[in-house]
Design a protein around this nucleic acid. Structure first.
Lengths: 129, 129
DNA sequence: GCAAAATACCTCGTATAGCAATGTATATGG
DNA sequence: CCATATACATTGCTATACGAGGTATTTTGC
C-alpha cells in the first residue's frame, strides 16, 4: 500500500476559512519580521509565531523568502555559526523597507474597512448574556 | 484567430499581493453584508463595494453564496419583483449568524495581531519629512 | 410585436499560493 | 559511527478567486 502523502481534504473543517484569511498577509508579515534587523529562516517562523498568531510551515516561508529576494525586497547571506549548521540571514533592502511601508498602509486601509463592516456584528456580541 | 479568453498573467503586477490579502475575508464579508437583512446577489456586490473597499466579481460571489448555503449558513428564496427580473434573496440562518460572530471575533484577533506586528513600520512612516 | 438593451443569476477553466511531506547537509552526543 | 538536532530546500496537491463567457426575463424603442 502506498503511503498517503497528502491527507484527505476535509471540506467540513471549520478552520478552513481561517487559513484562507492569512493568505496574502504572509509576505507582509515576513517583511515585517525583518524590520528590526536580520533573521534567518527558522528564526522568522519563531518570531512570527511569538509576535502574532501566524504559524508558518517551512514549506511556506522559503518560497516566500525566495520570491521576495527575486523582487529585490530583501537580500540573503550565509553566516557560519560558531556551532551548528550555517544560517542564511535575510535583511530588508531599501526597496523592501519602502514596499513594506506601502503594504502596511494598504493593510490598515483594508483592515479598517473590514472592521467597520463587522461593527454591527461585534456590537451584538457584547449584548449577549 | 482564437479569442484570448484569459489574459496573460502579469506576474510583475505590484497589486498582486493586495488581491491575495482579500482572500478568505470574502466569505466573512458576504455573511456580514446580510447582517441587517436579506439582499440579492448583485446587491451584495454593491453593498460591499460601498461599505468597504471590497470589489467582488459575479464569478466570485455566486460560488461563495452557494458554498455558504451548502453549509446551511444562509438560505435563498426567489422573489418575483413587481418589475424586472426575479431576484434570489439570501438571508442568514441562525447558524450563519453564529458563525459570523465567531468569524468576526477571529478576525479581530488576527487583525490586531498583524497590526501590532506592523506598528514599528507605521510609526516610522509618521516620522518621514 | 419584435429587436435591442438592461438586469440578474450561473458556470467553466485557469493561475496562484500555502503547506504537508519529503530530501539533503552539517554538527554534536553517546 | 550512528542517532539526533538544526537548518535550508523542493515537490506536488489542493483550494479559491475571478475573467469570460452563457441563459433567462423584462422593459424600451421603433
Amino acid at each position: 500500500m502506498a503511503i498517503k502523502r497528502f491527507p484527505a481534504p476535509e471540506a467540513d473543517q471549520p478552520d478552513r476559512w481561517e487559513a484562507q484569511l492569512r493568505k496574502g498577509a504572509l509576505e507582509m508579515a515576513a517583511l515585517a519580521s525583518l524590520w528590526r534587523g536580520r533573521l534567518y529562516g527558522l528564526e522568522i517562523i519563531r518570531f512570527l509565531e511569538a509576535q502574532s498568531r501566524l504559524v508558518l510551515a517551512e514549506g511556506t516561508i522559503y518560497p516566500i523568502l525566495n520570491r521576495l529576494r527575486t523582487e529585490a525586497l530583501l537580500t540573503s547571506e550565509w553566516v557560519e555559526a560558531d556551532a551548528g549548521h550555517p544560517r542564511k540571514y535575510y535583511s530588508l533592502t531599501d526597496a523592501g523597507r519602502e514596499r513594506l511601508r506601502l503594504m502596511a498602509a494598504a493593510w490598515m486601509d483594508f483592515s479598517s474597512g473590514l472592521t467597520q463592516l463587522l461593527e454591527p456584528v461585534l456590537e451584538s456580541e457584547e449584548v449577549i448574556q
